[in-house]
Design a protein around this nucleic acid. Structure first.
Lengths: 277, 277
DNA sequence: TTGACAAATGACTAATCGGTCATTATTATA
DNA sequence: TATAATAATGACCGATTAGTCATTTGTCAA
């Protein structure tokens, strides 16, 4: 395990237990068995560490959820959505704790923007799922529905973030599917309008409408640090496809599936999935 | 305005803007135009200040909501509940911000207990409302319902806590009433069982099952610091009723209504309401 | 073995914080 | 006015923090 990874693992544990502010760099390095100076060889600052953590996990979680939403074609998508959400929270429960503790609390501008950016991506995934599932029927209530789904997620995730009880994720997902369907099919009094959502829009803090060139850059970086493997070859082919499309969709999809299995490529897979749309 | 009140007002503003940890005592006293030493004449510590703020507002908000729930007899109770909740949040939006920022983040043990205690009171109010409204029909799903109501509250309150937009609280309440009724009448797959709720119960950190003597003590303190008025006389009579019941319910209710109009007596009114129950 | 380079160290700095207390200003009382 | 009591001040303290950098340690090619 690289030193950077060691620091991230250790810090995550301490942040989950004590919170970000309350954990000192000294504590982290003591726990790691390294010196304080060594910490600053891996990260420019303490803030850079928490941002790295948030990026690392949010990219994984969002990629996973988006993938399941895109690739479940029937109405079971809602169930798989909820199940994947809670599975992610369960797997990364330390990260979930950090996220909840530091929620909107952070002083750091960059961090706030980061969170708003990921929240936007997440909202997009949910909204596209709603539209596919219920279509025109929810055109006036879909924003409320999106907020309710997010509300369900937050509310119920607190249960097992704060109490370390193993929960029946299947039943939880089923229960929330029923609730969501009820709201979707019978709601007649919307509250959140399209205009309201637009008003809440972030003023494009990160202009991360990820461009082709940026993705190419990301891929090239990733290729360099990878060993020879199917994933590396797939990445190489996807890069070529990006620059000069020639493969049919089936091949592209297969290549994407290849790299999704590598945790380090999940984010690229997510970006490419949106790009090739 | 007393010095204590000035500090509380100023601090609330700064805490809402910057967070509790990020606001120094020096900043508060500078803004107040007093010295740092003067701060410690009003509060033993910075922690005592945040606790005083939380007590002050939570007592008001919970009293208001509990009162409206107890005194709306027909099925309009749900509407009035939501309306009162959001009205409270709207009136005390700076406090709402502080509450959201400091959510579960606090290191202070006493503060955590305080919050769990108020959360418990709040849950009780919601649960009693659910039982009165839907009765046996929701016996297996009422805990889910309670969590959903809390979820709706949190989710939608973020809207106007973070974006300073004037919202149509009537429509918001209506919209949430419909959603709640839908869930109450059609949910068949519960997730949260009574056992689960019991498992989450706090291990009685504050043994605040407020005893008769404690309430008498509170009343006596309050009487001392009040000027001659109807409210003071009412308090005096309620104290006598507590020690030696002799008035019929109608009179007691009237007396309670008298003191409810004084913001400083709201909490006592709430406690007495529960006691005479 | 040597020397050059990189990695790692931890004492140190500068800043900030909550909280104290000897001192001073203000008010009330006689 | 003189005296006592109370209110208010702000320099100061000890503790803690993120971040730095001169120095030491480790590594590997010559």
């Amino acid at each position: 395990m690289s030193k950077k990874q060691l620091i991230m693992d250790t810090a995550l544990e301490l942040f989950a237990k004590q919170g970000f502010e309350a954990t000192s760099v000294q504590q982290i390095t003591d726990q790691c068995g390294i010196s304080k100076g060594a910490f600053y060889l891996s990260f420019k600052s303490k803030d850079e560490l928490i941002i790295a953590l948030i990026d690392y996990f949010m990219m994984q979680i969002i990629s996973d959820i988006d993938h399941i939403v895109r690739n479940t074609k029937d109405e079971a998508v809602l169930y798989h959505f909820y199940f994947t959400v809670y599975q992610s929270f369960y797997r990364h429960s330390d990260f979930a704790k950090v996220l909840m503790k530091e929620q909107s609390q952070s002083l750091n501008k960059e961090l706030i923007f980061k969170m708003q950016y990921y929240d936007k991506l997440f909202s997009e995934t949910i909204l596209s799922m709603i539209e596919r599932l219920y279509g025109e029927a929810v055109s006036s209530t879909k924003y409320d529905l999106m907020y309710c789904i997010k509300g369900f997620m937050n509310t119920y995730s607190q249960l097992f973030v704060f109490y370390n009880v193993p929960l029946d994720l299947k039943m939880l997902a089923e229960s929330l599917v029923e609730k969501t369907n009820l709201l979707a099919q019978h709601t007649t009094v919307p509250f959140i309008s399209k205009e309201m959502v637009a008003m809440f829009k972030v003023k494009q803090p990160l202009s991360e409408e990820t461009k082709k060139e940026e993705i190419v850059g990301l891929i090239e970086n990733k290729i360099e640090e990878m060993e020879e493997s199917i994933e590396k070859e797939s990445l190489q082919l996807l890069k070529e496809q990006l620059l000069d499309p020639k493969f049919p969709p089936a091949i592209v999809k297969g290549l994407l599936e290849n790299i999704r299995n590598n945790p380090h490529c999940k984010w690229i897979s997510y970006l490419l999935g949106r790009y090739f749309e």
